[in-house]
Amino acid sequence: MTRRAAPKIGLWLLQRLGGGYHSEALIGDLIEQCARGRTRWWAWREIIVAIVIARTRRWHSSQWLRLARASWWCLTEMSIVLSVILMADKTQSGRSFKDLSAPTFVVTLMVLFSISLIGLKSLIRLHRVQRQRTAIHSLMALFLVMSLGVGTLTWAATAHYGKTQPVPREHSKITGTTIAGLSKEPQP
């Protein structure tokens, strides 16, 4: 049997551009098969196919899917925060059971809960599939989640408390006197 060496440039390219989960095993297989008499043409064909598959998979997972995942995560987090705020607001302000069982409130809460549950389930499943995750990616994800959480809470608080602040009596009616009063400095 003729002993051939695997193309070194090809293996180097595969190491650089392949990057699959089992790329080391694949490189080993190519070296082994070339040593057992496979042609260099066969090895090059395998290398090209491996690079094309790896690149295609990486492109698919890195461009649109990442954006979709980030958007989905954002939507899920917003739903969770909004549902918690909504529930806390309704219960704290001492509303009656009639208010709590109002169709608008119940439907809104159900929609938010559904989005949260579906989002969390799909994200947990996705996390299980992803086996290789570097430390920097995890840190970036953590930072993104924290900043999104803080941002959502700030936005929700501003939107909520900004609306419910009492309007000064002198500004509540648009009359000649109030418009004149607006131009003056506010009274302490």
């Binding site: 699959g20 989960y21 694949l26 064909r45 196919v49 491996a50």
Partner: peptide, 14 residues
């Protein structure tokens, strides 16, 4: 192709 086999094995493993 070996790469196709490994890609399928990765999917099965997942």
């Amino acid at each position: 192709a070996l790469a196709s086999v490994y890609a399928a094995l990765e999917r099965l493993e997942a």
